[in-house]
Write a protein that binds this DNA or RNA. Structure first.
Lengths: 121, 121
DNA sequence: ATTTGACTTAGAGTTCTCTCTAAGGTCTAC
DNA sequence: GTAGACCTTAGAGAGAACTCTAAGTCAAAT
């Protein structure tokens, strides 16, 4: 069992963010007698998944939607699958965009270096 | 010469956004006698570059900084190069993040499909 | 001549995702 | 038993990047 700040540290996010996610229904940790949140390994795994989705620009609303479907049970598997596949499509196209810009920048950087030759040496 | 809405259409962004970029000093179109903005091919090229930077998550503040350096003249080439190289580094690491999540999703999607076999057929 | 539709401005409003504040409760160590 | 470091809440604040509004000007078309 981990407190909110241990969990936050483990995940590299802030306790504030975890409370925010809870308010949004993305995570639902148990509480002890004193009302203090208790996160377990399952929560950590789920949050690692959430983090990956956020790092790849999935909006919080979509993560909420996915979470809600999850809680509704097995019959929502098809909808969840659709969400995941759509996000994967987004990721693939974002990779292409990044690669194209990477190539463009490589050329631009080379041009800069060429132009600066006299200055640098 | 293009009006703001022609330019916006050409670039796939809104006229609002172009005015916002102008306010931020990222673009400085000429004005005609009536005060109407006039964009030329150079502006289009510059905006295409700006768009690529935005699509790859370069913050508007950094684009402003790059623009400012540009206007200050040739002696800022080194600083501009540094900005571009840093952004390229960001792009490369973002590509890695996306690839890793893509792989993770591929597995997850496969697991979903496996679990849903009976339901689908 | 008036309508249509484009343009202008300054500034307000929106959305997203946190991030922080204030006021207070609880646990552990000394 | 009190200091310090945790935790709690509701709700406000922040920053980024637009996005829109209101009030008005202007030129071309009918």
């Amino acid at each position: 069992m981990y407190t909110i700040s241990e969990t936050a540290a483990k995940l590299g996010m802030s306790a504030h963010t975890l409370r925010y996610y809870e308010k949004e229904g993305i995570i639902s940790p148990q509480r002890n007698e004193a009302g203090v949140r208790e996160f377990d390994e399952q929560h950590i795994l789920w949050l690692q998944f959430v983090k990956k989705m956020r790092e790849t620009q999935m909006p919080v609303t979509q993560i909420k939607e996915y979470t809600k479907l999850f809680q509704e049970g097995e019959h929502t598997a098809g909808d969840r699958l659709k969400l995941l596949e759509e996000h994967q499509q987004y990721i693939k196209s974002q990779i292409e965009t990044l690669k194209a810009t990477d190539d463009m920048l490589t050329k631009k950087v080379a041009a800069y270096k060429e132009a600066m030759k006299g200055v640098l040496n």
